[in-house]
């Protein structure tokens, strides 16, 4: 009947280890599920249409960072959202972790960290595949390690936290609705398929899309991997992502705790 003095950090790592063990086992399935949609977009808009001459060749330069951003964001979000919906809605499997001798919030934070890691893995997978399909991209550079890390971590975490919020705030039967009403428009109006500066032509839209977190991830990817193309200043991007993180983590923890204890 021992009660060892166990640190929260050690239990956090045990939780993370569980999620990574499971993710590694389902890696192929996970990558197919989360990256098939952006990659199909790449085939159409980054390969077929340019070949047909319908879209200019340099469109791929604008699109590649957006595709990487979408993969990062959506994978990070789904990696948290889907288990939350299933665990709290049906199987209650997460209850064995809610019994761990740490504050329940730590379980939620671990999910966000795991989502961030999975988002980054999806982005690392998509980038070379998309580049292969699209062909050479002049402005592409992978040497901006600092900005790339900032955008990947802050962007991944923002969407993982959003997954926590969406996965715990809605009952399972409203998930389909939520995906169509919130997630689909976010992907389309997230400046992933076109640069934010391109919206100069439609000023109302240019300001309206700023509420969309994906805009900052997509623009951030432009700033990081195609810095020669027009993009938002990196400082603005990082500040916006930081603020989004604070908001979503705060709200996500609140809705998570509502489900965790009654």
């Amino acid at each position: 009947m021992s009660e060892p003095n166990v640190s929260t950090a050690r239990i956090f790592l045990a939780l993370l280890r569980r999620d990574i063990t499971v993710a590694r086992r389902e890696l192929v399935f996970f990558l197919i599920r989360t990256t098939i949609q952006p990659l199909l977009f790449v085939v159409i808009f980054g390969f077929l249409l340019p070949k047909m001459g319908i879209v200019g060749r340099n469109y791929t330069t604008l699109m590649l960072p957006g595709i990487v951003a979408i993969s990062l964001a959506m994978s990070g979000m789904m990696a948290v959202m889907l288990p939350m919906i299933v665990d709290f809605g049906q199987t209650k499997e997460i209850e064995d972790r809610l019994l761990a001798p740490i504050p329940n919030q730590v379980v939620a934070i671990e999910k966000i960290v795991n989502g961030t890691i999975q988002g980054i893995i999806a982005a690392i997978f998509v980038l070379p595949v998309a580049r292969l399909i699209m062909g050479p991209i002049n402005a592409l550079t992978l040497t901006n390690v600092g900005p790339l890390l900032v955008v990947a971590i802050l962007g991944g975490a923002a969407f993982a936290a959003m997954g926590l919020l969406l996965g715990t705030a809605f009952p399972p039967q409203q998930v389909g609705m939520m995906l169509s009403v919130i997630v689909a428009p976010m992907m389309m109006f997230g400046c992933a398929y076109y640069p934010w500066r391109g919206l100069d032509a439609i000023p109302a839209m240019k300001w309206a899309v700023l509420v969309n977190p994906l805009v900052y991830v997509a623009e951030g990817m432009r700033a990081a991997i195609t810095p020669a193309t027009p993009h938002m200043p990196l400082l603005a991007i990082a500040s916006a992502l930081l603020l989004i993180n604070v908001i979503f983590i705060f709200l996500g923890l609140k809705t998570f705790m509502k489900r965790a204890v009654s």
Binding site: E3, P4, V6, S7, R10, I11, A14, L15, R17, R18, T21, V22, R25, E26, T91, K92, E93, E95, D96, R97, L99, A100, P101
Partner: peptide, 30 residues
Amino acid sequence: SRIGVVPQRPNADRSLTVVENLVFHASYFG
């Protein structure tokens, strides 16, 4: 840290094997 709980409906971690369920659960307690 001092209690063990058997729920009303089995809620084993179905992403893990039987033995992993026990080993991981113990690891959540350090």
